[in-house]
């Protein structure tokens, strides 16, 4: 065996270890599309209910927490979630195809299960807050739980997602103190951070 052969063996080993334990087909474009969906979702809320983004004004989640608003909010969040997921699925599938990797394998299901456990807990917790008329804490809670979910999922996919998780958590904690700016934190956390993260990932792994 000469040097080149050894080097080849080492690269092969590394790639096998990566591929078998982590889901690496996650596309940066899915991050960008999720961010855009979230921006649209927040935009709809701002336009429909006249919530100002940049000032801690009278009109906050707290004042608006009527049945009608909550209903609108739930539908809005649900639409954003579904469209973001579908787009993420589409772009990830495309990347897997380009790279010739399997789209659905054990690493993919492991990633999804570990992402959705904290996420489901957060979702149910948010519903309980609506039930108890604490809707004002929903943006902070969803951000913190989403951050935890990403942190948990980072063990099963690209490492970089860990940083995104930490950032979401930090934002959620800030939002929990600055309740008046909740919507702004939502926009930054789910919209802008996703777009930044997705763009970085796209240029790092797919260009």
């Amino acid at each position: 065996m000469d040097d080149r052969e050894h080097l080849h063996t080492l690269t092969e080993i590394r790639s096998l270890m990566e591929r078998s334990s982590r889901f690496i087909s996650l596309s940066g474009l899915s991050g960008i599309s999720a961010g855009v969906c979230a921006c649209v979702g927040v935009g709809v809320l701002v336009v429909r209910w006249g919530i100002p983004l940049f000032s801690q004004s009278e009109v906050s989640f707290y004042e608006l927490a009527t049945v009608e608003f909550i209903k609108f909010l739930l539908i809005d969040v649900f639409c954003v979630l579904i469209s973001a997921l579908l787009l993420a699925l589409y772009f990830t599938r495309r990347k897997a195809k380009i790279k010739g990797l399997p789209f659905w394998d054990k690493s993919a299901s492991r990633l999804l299960v570990n992402l959705f456990i904290p996420l489901a807990a957060g979702g149910i917790f948010s519903l309980s807050m609506i039930y108890h008329h604490f809707a004002v804490f929903i943006p902070a809670t969803t951000l913190v739980f989403y951050g935890l979910a990403l942190l948990n999922a980072s063990k099963y996919t690209l490492h970089d997602i860990r940083a995104l998780g930490l950032a979401e958590m930090a934002l959620g904690l800030c939002a929990s103190f600055l309740l008046g700016y909740s919507l702004l934190f939502w926009l930054i956390g789910f919209g802008i951070l996703h777009i930044i993260y997705g763009t970085i990932m796209y240029f790092k792994y797919e260009k």
Binding site: T9, E12, I13, L16, M17, R19, S20, S21, P102, D105, K106
Partner: peptide
């Protein structure tokens, strides 16, 4: 190459079944 590959996969995964190994290698 195959034995080295098998070990590499088992180093980072607690348990792997036959078909997964077959697909990966």
């Amino acid at each position: 190459r195959v034995r080295l590959g098998i070990m590499a996969i088992l180093m980072v995964n607690e348990q792997v079944d036959f078909n997964q190994l077959k697909e990966l290698l």
